[in-house]
Design a protein around this nucleic acid. Structure first.
Lengths: 113, 113
DNA sequence: TGGTTATATAAACAATTGGTTATGTGAGTG
DNA sequence: CACTCACATAACCAATTGTTTATATAACCA
């Protein structure tokens, strides 16, 4: 779970167009043209977004003739989720959950990332 | 769970300095000087990072004389986690878990974000 | 009052980002 | 072959980001 991976993943997720592309890919593979269709944006712009997602490992691409189908790759999303899990006890209702309080105390050793 | 909130949250998390600051705040409140200490970076740089975190709602700030103690605010982290949860079935071992497969089929309706 | 400590603000900067238009490439189709 | 369709690349642009140095503000201390 390297810092650079998290950098790229969170940066990729910080854009609504890219999040919408990932949401679309939940339904299965899609070509660049299909992914571009819903947006009021040129095709090269979408290609750039796809490159960001690919560099972050969030999608991978195949080849089907002239199409370059994109598919969701969830491993990087898992890393991001794992990082965020380290904070779960801070939004769990800490005044009602003993478990959360214990977790919080246990994490008092402030290890980095 | 607005798009702008997620934009600001993920963008804030996309920097290792800011993630380390949040990690430090798990241990409790800290002043700007305390937060700046571990980094090879000037104080104004840290102040800027804190402003990014504050605008994203990830921290809040009090006043204690001349100190401006920072405290972790986890609500925005919860929103980010909630968004990521929508992808959990894609990294769960889909060939061994019936539950994940069912979730995946259920999500075939590709609703946006 | 004067000096130090904690933090903020301003101005400058290079690098990155998110978009554009224009053009290239390469696979399919008449 | 000529044409179109799917996608990539290049060059450019304005805006944002992450950092710096220098300076201001405001609280505490002697």
């Amino acid at each position: 779970m390297s810092a650079e991976t998290l950098d790229a993943t969170f940066a990729a997720l910080a854009d609504p167009t890219r999040r919408a592309i990932l949401a679309r890919l939940k339904a299965g593979e899609a070509t660049v043209t299909e992914l571009a269709a819903p947006f009021d944006m040129t095709q090269p712009a979408i290609t750039k977004h796809l490159k960001v997602l690919e560099r972050a490992g969030l999608i991978s691409r195949g080849r089907d003739g002239q199409r370059r189908p994109c598919r969701l790759e969830a491993a990087a999303l898992k890393e991001a989720t794992d990082w965020l899990e380290g904070y779960r006890s801070f939004w769990a209702d800490r005044y009602q959950s003993l478990d959360a309080l214990l977790n919080e105390l246990k994490e008092e050793d402030t290890r980095d990332e």
